[in-house]
Amino acid sequence: MEGTPHPVSRTPEEVFNDFKGRRAGLVKALTTDVDKFYQMCDPDKENLCLYGLPNETWEVNLPVEEVPPELPEPALGINFARDGMQEKDWLSLVAVHSDSWLLAVAFYFGARFGFGKAERKRLFQMINDLPTVFEVVTGNVKQPKDNSGAQNNSSKSKSSGKTSRQSESQPKGVKMSPPPKEENESGGEEEEEEDEQGATLCGACGDNYANDEFWICCDICERWFHGKCVKITPAKAEHIKQYKCPSCSNKRARV
């Protein structure tokens, strides 16, 4: 269900921006806002759906009544299964259906705006470069490759639970840039760099590293996150002895 009319999209890039906004909202619902999402999916209520909105927000609401709807609708009645299975399995199932819905909406726009074969291919390639909602929720997003055992040992302090400084001005427990890349003597340096850049992703939003961004690593699952995605600032990170991401904190709280 849309709070405001969706923006008119005419190119694959515009449709992809709509996709990214909706995807970001769904990822928030199933990770950083998971407690709120869980409470809203009351099995005693009517059939509910999880909607990702273009402005990177989400909502749980009843499906639209019009048939056919203006846009494809998400999976119906996700709240009914909430208490009938393990929470992580339920969240994973909702994530899978959310991925299907995102693709349906994107290619609905593609058909609506007359995309040809080349435009549909470009749209799918942009979408496929991002990890799925399911991969983010289940923690299956690829992590940075270990290029140097010495570097890996020095980058994380087991005693303090915080990463070491990568530079004199950089706070502990954060990562400001992708790990240094080693040259590939066999001539595959460029391919290796592309692989590593694609593998270094935020565990919350799934986006790649960007220069001068604040990052923090969870000491439990060892996934990296944008500070803004998990609401941690560099100043706050200085006083954290052991950082636990929202997913790990929620799991431990319910044990």
Rank of each mutant, 00 (worst) to 15 (best):
R120C: 15
R120P: 04
R120H: 12
R120W: 08
K121E: 13
K121Y: 07
K121T: 03
K121F: 12
K121S: 15
R122G: 13
R122A: 15
R122F: 12
R122N: 13
L123N: 01
L123C: 13
L123S: 02
L123R: 04
F124P: 01
F124M: 15
F124C: 12
F124H: 13
F124N: 14
Q125C: 12
Q125M: 14
Q125N: 14
Q125A: 15
Q125F: 14
Q125T: 15
Q125R: 09
M126T: 05
M126F: 06
M126N: 08
M126D: 07
M126Q: 10
I127N: 05
I127M: 12
N128G: 10
N128M: 08
N128S: 15
N128Q: 14
D129I: 09
L130K: 02
L130V: 02
L130M: 13
L130Y: 04
L130H: 10
P131D: 05
P131F: 02
P131L: 04
P131G: 06
P131M: 09
P131I: 02
P131E: 05
T132Y: 05
T132W: 02
T132I: 10
V133Y: 00
V133M: 06
V133C: 11
V133R: 03
F134D: 15
F134L: 14
E135W: 01
E135P: 00
E135N: 06
V136Q: 05
V136D: 09
V136M: 06
V137S: 05
V137G: 08
V137P: 05
V137K: 01
V137M: 11
V137N: 04
V137C: 09
V137H: 02
V137E: 01
T138W: 01
T138Q: 03
T138C: 08
T138P: 03
T138I: 07
T138Y: 00
G139P: 00
G139Y: 00
N140W: 00
N140T: 08
N140K: 05
N140H: 12
N140F: 02
N140L: 10
N140S: 06
V141Y: 00
K142N: 05
K142I: 05
K142Y: 00
K142T: 09
K142G: 03
Q143T: 10
Q143P: 00
Q143L: 12
Q143N: 10
Q143I: 04
Q143K: 14
Q143V: 10
Q143S: 11
P144G: 09
P144R: 00
P144H: 07
P144Q: 01
P144Y: 00
K145T: 07
K145V: 07
K145Y: 11
K145Q: 12
K145E: 13
K145W: 06
K145S: 14
K145P: 05
K145N: 12
K145L: 13
D146A: 11
D146W: 04
D146K: 11
D146S: 09
D146G: 08
N147A: 15
N147P: 02
N147L: 12
N147K: 04
N147C: 13
S148F: 02
S148A: 10
S148Y: 00
S148I: 05
S148H: 00
S148T: 08
G149W: 07
G149I: 06
G149L: 08
A150Y: 03
A150E: 10
A150T: 11
A150V: 08
A150H: 02
A150N: 07
A150I: 08
Q151Y: 12
Q151I: 06
Q151L: 14
